[in-house]
Design a protein around this nucleic acid. Structure first.
Length: 341
DNA sequence: GTTCCACAGGAAAATATGGAGG
DNA sequence: CCTCCATATTTTCCTGTGGAAC
């Protein structure tokens, strides 16, 4: 029943991108100078999760490499490589220039020097989740190097700008900005139909089911494809030749749970205690959370640290904050209730 | 209005962690 | 094994904000 599993995997870049022609063309034209060996403007791509930011960035750079010989591409996930050192290291590594770099003997400036001296082909650097960078000055470092074109991907423009210093803000403001919105239900349906066509045997899914997946995913293509993938692999394991409605409902829950589990796994034990506390005891203010937390653990962290945990978990969409001041309370985000299958 | 207090989150100092080289 | 060094995390100290009680 599965024809090509790659098509349903996260991070797959399709041969044709659906419903993003304007954005694809925009980004292509920004990067166009690089095909003539000229420096290109920095591009900023923003939009909610599952809007196709990473997908079109990879798509456009791959197209570029098909057309032109002397272009390299590197992709850095800043969520994983969130320090300046790691980001630069990752780029050098992709370029194959890390041979003799050691952490002690190699100060940051030398990494920059290396990049500067890199006289290979022009390179497009994709900085995914750039708003997660602890020290966004790395964008500034790269900005100065004409042989690199930068594509910054972030959820919200403000979150990216609020953390960089003024010099950089003024330079980024003038860069090309590609804004992407959530997909509409029928656009998501088209995406699902295409993936289903290439990835699954004929007749495995019905149109009605694809519409329901699109509806449940609420504009998030990553979630929609995740549900389709979960449903297909469930049906495959059960040796069904088509996806039943029961399987679909299960798959929707699984896909959501998987996404949540991924964030949950990245929490430290202390952060996990805080999360469980909020989950079990409903909306709570920071002080009350901390008091309860003190009773739960040995070697507790301070209130300030717990506040940092809370804001981090809010960023990861695990918790929700209500109120701005004394009235602030944290509660769980209830993703399943927002869009049931 | 004014005052008070819990809160958010920045900055910097302190401490813990981890990897390389002895 | 230990030491050194950079990095990661936590703590301490702090400023500014807005809701609530007066």
């Amino acid at each position: 029943m599965i024809r090509d599993a790659r098509v349903l995997r996260a991070g797959f870049v399709p041969r044709e991108v659906e419903h993003r022609d304007a954005e694809v063309n925009h980004l292509s034209s920004v990067l166009e100078p690089i095909t003539n060996g000229e420096p290109a403007e920095t591009a900023i791509v923003t939009g909610p999760s599952g809007a196709g930011k990473t997908c079109i960035s990879k798509f456009v750079t791959e197209k570029l490499r098909e057309e032109v010989l002397d272009v390299e591409t590197t992709y850095v996930n800043c969520w994983r490589n969130y320090t300046r050192f790691r980001t630069l290291y990752q780029i050098l590594d992709d370029l194959g220039a890390t041979i003799d770099i050691h952490r002690q003997s190699t100060p940051h400036d030398e990494l920059i020097d290396r990049l500067q001296q890199h006289d290979g082909p022009r390179t497009v650097v994709i900085l995914d989740e750039a708003d997660q960078l602890e020290d966004p000055s790395v964008i500034y470092d790269l900005h100065d190097l004409p042989q690199f074109a930068i594509v910054c991907i972030a959820n919200k423009e403000e979150e990216l700008f609020s953390r960089v210093d003024d010099r950089l803000v003024s330079r980024l403001r003038s860069s090309e900005h590609i804004r992407m919105g959530k997909y509409h239900d029928n656009q998501l349906y088209d995406i699902l139909r295409a993936r289903s066509k290439w990835g699954l045997e004929k007749g495995v899914t019905s149109d009605d089911q694809l519409y329901r997946i699109a509806d449940a995913a609420a504009g998030d293509a990553r979630l929609a494809i995740g549900i389709l993938r979960a449903a297909a692999s469930k049906a495959d394991r059960k040796n069904c030749d088509r996806i039943t409605d029961d399987i679909l409902i299960d798959a929707a829950e699984d896909a959501r749970a998987q996404i949540k589990q991924k964030s949950l796994d990245s929490l430290t034990p202390h952060q996990r205690v805080v999360y469980d506390l909020v989950r079990d005891h409903g909306p709570l203010g920071p002080s009350e959370i901390h008091e309860r937390y003190l009773e739960e653990v040995d070697e507790p962290r301070t209130l300030r640290t717990v506040r940092t945990y809370l804001s981090k978990m809010t960023q990861y969409n695990l918790l929700e904050a209500e109120g701005t001041s004394r009235d602030r309370e944290y509660s769980l985000v209830d993703s399943a209730a927002a869009s049931p299958m």
